[in-house]
Design a protein around this nucleic acid. Structure first.
Length: 366
DNA sequence: TAATCGTGGGT
DNA sequence: TACCCAAGATT
């Protein structure tokens, strides 16, 4: 029997679920449509700390290029990094490729159907293992993401700050998870967290769980979840070097797998240090040239803010440097993180033409 | 446990 | 503007 959380939640989900490219909606499943573990896995990796609108185009692009896990496993890593460029948290892309290879190599091309089996794969942690087990394999796993943490800390007025409250939250979620439709239960909670039980100004009057919600009862719903205080972001500085050859090609290098923007492409840069005491300048250039200042690019990462001084130089002859020269026709398809595109655009406006859908509404003021 | 690891959108 | 936030994993 389903409890007093799952029953109203599933009823709400049947009526208000979102339609998403990686999701088999309740009516479709009633007609026998089955979840593809590959699509569930791919979407879950992309959705880690990333919004649904940001994921949409990337998901479509990936499944078009690589329709199966075997196809992804066989793909050149460089192509995967190019396809991931701009989505952020690039270790996800490296682990995605490693996971696909492991599934082909160690699991006969089939995803493990248990939480423990999934958890052992690269890039799959507690949340993702539970989500895939529940959504793709109908296992009653306790799925706990940021949405569900918010919903449950409110339902039970869990006042312990995150992340210390996680074990307590997980117990409550495990208790509430139904044996039937565990995947819809998890997805329903996430839809609820997105549409109703929002971080600010939750729409409690529309919530199917309102009558059983402790925080709603006391009017303190916006006080949950309690979170540990955040640390201040230090400012780091560095220099970036845009070398342009006679054909307009830009010198790019591949960044090491470890560290910021690992495994991605970029222009040569200095180290990014907390203090730019006049040392992080032209002396870090990849080779001697007439390096001309081309402005400063500011970029905010998760735990620091970066100010990159951009230098530009036109070179008559390609020297023997590490890296490669990317032509104007090629550079749009390179595995360049947003920061690197900003730096290049500072020296070469127009290097990345914005594709402008004619129907896109303008945010410009009249 | 705490730090590391991107980006874009909302308020 | 300056935060806050998003279907977290790894070390």
């Amino acid at each position: 029997m389903t409890n007093r959380i799952a029953a109203p939640l599933l009823d709400w989900y049947d009526r208000h679920h979102r339609s998403l490219p990686w999701r088999v909606s309740p009516p479709d499943r009633a007609h026998g449509v089955v979840n593809d573990p590959y699509r569930v896995w791919l979407s879950e990796i992309m959705l880690q700390q990333t919004t649904v609108p940001a994921v949409m185009a990337y998901f479509e692009s990936f499944v078009r290029q690589w329709p199966t896990v075997a196809a992804l496993a066989a793909a050149p890593t460089e192509e995967v990094m190019k396809a991931w460029a701009g989505l952020g948290y690039y270790s996800r892309a490296r682990n995605l490729k490693a996971c696909a290879e492991a599934i082909v190599r160690d699991h006969g091309g089939r995803f493990p159907d248990s939480e423990a089996g999934l958890r052992a794969l690269p890039g799959i942690g507690p949340y993702t293992a539970a989500a895939i087990a529940a959504i793709a394999f109908d296992r009653p796993a306790a799925v706990v993401d940021g949405n569900i943490e918010r919903v449950f800390t409110r339902l039970f007025e869990i006042a312990t700050p995150l992340p210390a409250a996680k074990p307590d939250i997980r117990r409550h979620v495990a208790d509430a998870t139904p044996v039937t439709r565990p995947g819809d239960f998890a997805q329903g909670l996430m839809d609820l967290g997105t549409a109703i039980c929002t971080p600010r100004r939750p729409a409690c009057v529309l919530c199917p769980l309102a009558t059983g919600c402790a925080a709603r009862k006391s009017g303190r719903q916006e006080e949950f979840p309690v979170k540990a205080p955040k640390k201040a972001k230090p400012v780091r500085r560095g220099a970036a070097f845009i070398a342009v050859d006679a054909d307009g090609g830009v010198l790019l290098v591949r960044r090491p797998d470890k560290g910021m923007l690992g495994g991605m492409s970029g222009v040569p840069t200095s180290n990014w240090t907390v203090r730019g005491d006049g040392e992080t300048g032209v002396e870090a250039a990849p080779f001697p040239a007439e390096w001309t200042p081309a402005g400063t690019v500011s970029h905010v990462f998760t735990h620091f803010e970066l100010r990159l001084d951009v230098f530009h130089a036109d070179v008559a002859h390609r020297g023997n440097h590490p890296g490669w020269w990317s032509s104007p026709a090629e550079i749009g398809g390179e595995a360049l993180p947003t920061l690197m595109k900003k730096a290049i655009a500072a020296a070469l406006p127009g290097a990345f033409p914005p594709d402008r859908p004619a129907s896109k509404p303008s945010k410009d003021k009249p």
